[in-house]
Amino acid sequence: MKNIILVLAIVLFGYCSFAQTLTTQNTGNQLWIKLGDLALPQGGNDCFLRIVGGSGYNALKSQQGYVELHMRTSNGASVDENGYGFSATAVSYERNRFIADIRIVPNASGTNATSYGIFIYCGPYPGSTFFSVEDPTGIWTSNLSSSTTAPGGYSVPFEHVINNNTFLNGNLGIGTTQTDAPLTVNGTIHATEVLVDQSVPHPDYVFDKDYDLIPLKDVKYYIDQNHHLPEIPSTAQVAKEGINLGEMNAKLLKKIEELTLYLIEKDKKDRDLQSQVDELKKQILSIKKK
């Protein structure tokens, strides 16, 4: 075969386990590789498949990885939302995913399926990848082959669900391996609530009687010279350093409180001016009557 050197070694370990090693040529192209066929009866039966390898041959941590696949058949009567008489999930432990997709192709629809082809979308340089199958109720048949065409069937979701407390001693990166903080996220954070412990004073001191409120004419002069509000970072600074949410929230609240003081002061001047206008109107009316 052109793109893959098939079986190098087959080792049986345990009454229900199977392991096999495969080595691919350095084709520089990603391939769909069929690992084999699994005969697994309905009735809530499980199969566990582990693939160990990586995205290259070099001694780099970024090339190491392994993937775990868990498959379970239904009770023999029910199907999932897509009509499959089984379900499966996969977990990927690797920095550079050398397996980008997993497909399971049943030999029949719904709960009539009795055998399933297992396919992986493998990177161009998976090294000496090996995999093992653990299954107490089914029969695994090796059937290694490769193709550039994606098979149909069940696309296995990659997910990791934890139902207990989890404690990390290192940094956690989501969507990135470049972590410079306990949590680094490359993307959008969607939450129903965010609680930030502020390390800066709450700006209610703006309402103290001895607070020195900058005159508006000085604020205008600052804006004309710097093109941003006093104490608020510039566009260039934000682009370079980012934004500290707790600190920025306090600064914005301070500006809102200062704006409130400006409005209170303006309202007082407006009311004083209106009083003067009303008094002048009375005087004018009095003059007209005379």
Score class of each variant (00 low, 15 high):
Ile99His: 08
Ala100Pro: 05
Val105Gln: 06
Val105Met: 06
Ala108Ser: 13
Asn112Phe: 06
Asn112Tyr: 13
Ile118His: 14
Phe119His: 15
Phe119Val: 02
Gly123Cys: 13
Phe130Pro: 04
Phe131Pro: 03
Ser132Cys: 05
Val133Ala: 04
Thr137Ala: 14
Ile139Asp: 06
Trp140Gln: 05
Thr141Asp: 13
Asn143Arg: 05
Ser145Ile: 10
Ser145Arg: 09
Ser146Met: 04
Ser146Thr: 11
Ser147Pro: 10
Ser147Tyr: 13
Ala150Ile: 10
Pro151Ile: 00
Pro151Gly: 06
Val156Arg: 08
Phe158Thr: 04
Phe158Ala: 12
His160Glu: 11
His160Leu: 03
Val161Asp: 04
Val161Ser: 11
Asn169Pro: 03
Asn169Phe: 15
Gly170Asn: 15
Leu172Thr: 10
Ile174His: 13
Thr176Val: 09
Thr177Asn: 15
Thr177Gln: 15
Thr177Cys: 14
Gln178Trp: 02
Thr179Asp: 06
Ala181Thr: 07
Ala181Gly: 04
Ala181Val: 07
Pro182Leu: 04
Pro182His: 05
Val185Trp: 04
Asn186Gly: 12
Asn186Ala: 15
Gly187Val: 07
Thr188Val: 14
Ile189Asp: 08
His190Met: 02
Ala191Thr: 14
Ala191Pro: 09
Ala191Met: 14
Thr192Ala: 12
Glu193Gln: 15
Asp197Gln: 10
Val200Lys: 11
Pro203His: 06
Tyr205Ser: 10
Val206Ile: 14
Phe207Val: 02
Asp208Arg: 03
Asp208Ile: 01
Tyr211Pro: 15
Tyr211Glu: 05
Asp212Glu: 03
Pro215Ala: 00
Lys217Met: 02
Asp218Ile: 00
Val219Gln: 06
Lys220Met: 10
His227Trp: 03
His227Phe: 00
Leu229Lys: 08
Glu231Cys: 02
Ala236Val: 09
Val238Asp: 06
Lys240Ala: 05
